Amino acid sequence: MGYPDKLLGSDEQVVRHLHPHWLTVFWPVVFFLLVVGGASFGAALVDSGSDNAGLFRLLILGAAVLLLIALVLVPLVRWRTTHYVITTHRLLFREGILARKGRDIGLSRITDVSYSQSVWERVIQSGTITIESAGDSGATVLKQIPDSDGIQQLINHMIEEDADRRGRENAGYLRGEGQGAPRS
């Protein structure tokens, strides 16, 4: 599924659209299996001959549903609604389920892009990317980025392409080819 075109400029294109590394959903899947298994086992332990067997099973089911929402559904939806988008002009970050927050950084404003990986992150090809940009907002730290070293190289490449594009546009504007340029 592509990123919504309504958020992009007329000459802007999505180069890469990422979510956090898939391993971030590992524990929610483990919790799903544990909760379903535990609830099934607990429901099977309830004595069928008891007068309150239905009530006990209903309580076990209710507890299981609450645990599934808190430990499985919320992390999965949070993972799915976290977007890291690299376009031809900027980087877009969006996250949040009900309340959303986001940040856009123009490629021309980025001053440094670095990444770091622990030994485990190297094995699973994940890492942390730190983006420093001109302005008062400080560094942007993105954790659990898949192929973090490749993404760092891609961002640096896009910064260079953006600078080249801006140079061509400025040269065209100075020659009178740009919009609003004085005509002779």
Score class of each variant (00 low, 15 high):
I97T: 07
F26M: 14
W27T: 03
L33I: 06
L71G: 09
F32A: 13
H83M: 02
A39C: 05
A99V: 11
Y84A: 00
L76G: 04
H19S: 03
I97E: 11
V15M: 08
F93K: 01
G54F: 08
L92P: 02
D51Q: 08
R94P: 05
V74S: 06
P28W: 00
A99N: 09
A70P: 01
P20G: 00
A64L: 03
G38R: 07
W27R: 07
L34N: 01
V65M: 11
H83F: 11
W22E: 07
V15W: 14
H17T: 00
L68G: 13
L98I: 10
V74R: 10
A53S: 15
G49C: 04
V85E: 07
D47H: 11
V85T: 15
D47K: 03
R90M: 03
L59A: 12
H83D: 15
I69A: 05
E95R: 14
T87L: 07
L34E: 03
G54H: 09
E95G: 09
V15C: 04
T24Q: 13
A99I: 10
I60E: 00
V36L: 12
V30T: 01
V25A: 11
T24A: 04
H21K: 15
A53I: 09
V72A: 03
V25L: 14
G49N: 10
V35T: 12
G37Q: 05
V30P: 08
G54Y: 11
A63L: 15
A44G: 11
V77D: 12
P75C: 00
G54P: 04
A44N: 09
Y84S: 05
V25T: 14
L91M: 05
A39L: 09
G62C: 14
G54L: 12
T87R: 03
P28Y: 00
S48A: 14
H17Y: 11
F31M: 07
P75Q: 04
T87H: 10
L66M: 13
H21S: 02
R57E: 03
P20R: 12
V74K: 04
L71N: 09
V72N: 03
P20W: 09
G42N: 05
E12C: 06
G42K: 11
V29T: 06
V35K: 00
Y84W: 15
G49H: 11
L61D: 06
H17R: 04
L45M: 12
H19E: 01
I69S: 04
F26D: 05
P75K: 11
A44K: 13
F31N: 11
